[in-house]
Design a binder for these strands. Structure first.
Lengths: 345, 345
DNA sequence: TTGTATGCGTTATCAA
DNA sequence: TTGATAACGCATACAA
């Protein structure tokens, strides 16, 4: 592989000059020297070695991606994750950075945080860290530039980008309330995720303000997957006083709820209304199409990435978090509750 | 950031010894020295700098990912791509390699191939290169280890991993033939992709062997997206003698066909049968659920990655390609053709 | 306008 | 069993 020395020799100049022209350095280079360098570089198919360059410049122009939920590993098939990663990719491309995916499993910050400071990336994006994990403070303490994507960072100095969960939930609940629903249940993911708690609290708050009480059995926790969604929906429908509407913590859960309802012979939206969260591609494919809260996943990934690269470039980031606005997308799974219920005691 | 020198000083040994114990080097180290080094390394939160290491060892334990269709950029939201990338991720994790996503736009090999040899990755995975692109031969000519994912490499020395397209198509066509269909159309993606050509050829061959002729207007090319799928399906349904079954080149096209059929008031599968290809998650979510040809996307990504890392580790890869087996998944969009058609001339 | 020399943090070679 | 020291390929301070 050709090195800067080869280019220098070939073009009859010093390696400094080669470096200067290839890096658009500030120092003056004669037109002739420049021409020769460029020609030689092209002839030799020369590309600077990023590692050598990083070693001296302390910058490699790559952003690292770390997955907060290390237990399960990254799941790109999860449309939520891939949409966010797409945003990261877009922004990184636009700012001329590569992306590095850290694959090494980690357990705790004490032991593993330092591994993310191995020089492969200039800064790190942490995807949806689980609540109570010490990874974020651990990496931050090492002085590694850090931004949290899809979740609060928990640390005042660590910026984060997320959707405004409280606002999104409010949109969903108010929609259901407006249709006349009063018996509204909430299908939740795992309580070790911050967004699950945020959505639950916002759910209770929104209903509370409307003077609607939430029986504890209407709040069902589980996982953000189909199996959990189906089981918990069945549980809900088996209640002596089943809900007339279900607000699911995400679309996967909502789609599972659709399935479970159908299995029970309930028509959606006539007998049961369902609202999701995320607006993943599948939401518009199911029948009837899912009413859901859209969150700008790609934009969340992109903003977090821009924020991180700003920090890397020495532009200080505003402390605190950035909350992007969700949007209610009304489709076919919501309608007024059945009359029988309206007139019941 | 602590360096190997800090660890050496802290533990009272030379950097050579530190390097030896941290890399499980072959040379003997006293138990006492080893203990002290380990202790110091942990106390200092030391992590070896991957760039410095790569510079001398010429190995960084990262695999690069390059997207063959550079025009549109990577689209992770495309479930096809994300499933393959997931497999890459799994295999890289298992073999203790990181993943680097190359984001720089490229045009032609002559100008851009060398950029992938910048030392950030030891070898490169090219995703679905477009037909006629000189990128694969270009990178290969530079001596960079290379494996093509989801597509033929076109070069005898460059290994590739893909699904057995011909077999998959045969499964689909034989299923439709077995149901009694004779008027079968094929919705295609862009003809600049190898798999599109392979599927088309296999389609014609399978029907030909069964003695069924394929009128040219039954072969419609477009793009692998919904808009194209919908338009081309309408075109097909508007034919004087419309098909009774549509074999779509991928699931996105098939789902679009479902939509277009519904729009025309046709019932699926009673009036029209539809078969897809890929078995993306959405395939089982649509109503009725899509009959399709499953391809092991994640496994394709994983095998390609293992192949590449084998090469990097000095284990020579078998030349040629690896073709993984598809599987027919019969769901709700296929049935015998309507009787009126059977009895028509 | 240009070149020489130093150091970035490692691994590996040599000598002890 | 251990320690100097020379690369690795590059950017840059210093010198000319």
């Amino acid at each position: 592989m050709p090195t800067i020395h080869d280019v220098a020799r070939e073009s009859g100049v010093s390696i400094t000059t080669v470096s200067m022209v290839l890096n658009k350095g500030s120092r003056p280079v004669s037109a002739e020297a420049r021409r020769r360098v460029l020609e030689a570089a092209r002839a030799l198919n020369y590309t600077p070695n990023a590692n050598a360059r990083a070693l001296v410049s302390r910058r490699i122009r790559s952003v690292g991606v770390v997955f907060g939920t290390n237990q399960t590993g990254l799941n790109l098939v999860n449309p939520y994750i891939s949409a966010v990663l797409q945003g990261v990719l877009d922004a990184a491309t636009e700012r001329e950075h590569n992306i590095g995916l850290y694959t090494r499993p980690w357990r705790d910050a004490e032991r593993d945080a330092a591994a993310f400071r191995d020089g492969r990336a200039d800064g790190v994006l942490i995807f949806a860290p689980v609540l109570g994990s010490d990874l974020v403070p651990g990496i931050a303490a090492l002085g590694m530039p850090l931004v949290v994507v899809s979740g609060p960072s928990g640390e005042p100095e660590v910026p984060y980008v997320d959707v405004d969960n409280a606002h999104g939930v409010r949109l969903a609940v108010e929609h259901l309330l407006g249709l006349g629903h009063r018996r509204i249940a909430h299908l939740m993911g795992n309580l070790d995720q911050a967004n699950v708690l945020e959505r639950r609290d916002a759910f209770c708050a929104a209903l509370g303000e409307a003077g609607v009480s939430v029986p504890p059995e209407y709040l069902v926790a589980g996982q953000y997957n189909e199996v959990s969604g189906r089981e918990n929906t069945r549980r809900l429908l088996d209640l002596p006083e089943p809900p007339t509407a279900i607000f699911a913590g995400n679309d996967v859960l909502a789609i599972a709820a659709l399935d479970a309802a159908r299995e029970r012979g309930l028509r959606v939206p006539e007998d049961l209304s369902v609202v999701g969260f995320d607006d993943i591609p599948a939401a518009s494919l199911v029948t009837p199409a899912l009413t859901t809260v859209f969150q700008p996943l790609t934009e969340i990934g992109a903003q977090a990435t821009r924020l991180l690269i700003d920090v890397l470039d020495g532009r200080p980031a505003d402390p605190g978090g950035v909350l992007l606005e969700p949007k209610l997308v009304v489709r076919g799974t919501t309608a007024p509750p059945p009359p029988s219920v309206l007139s019941s005691p």
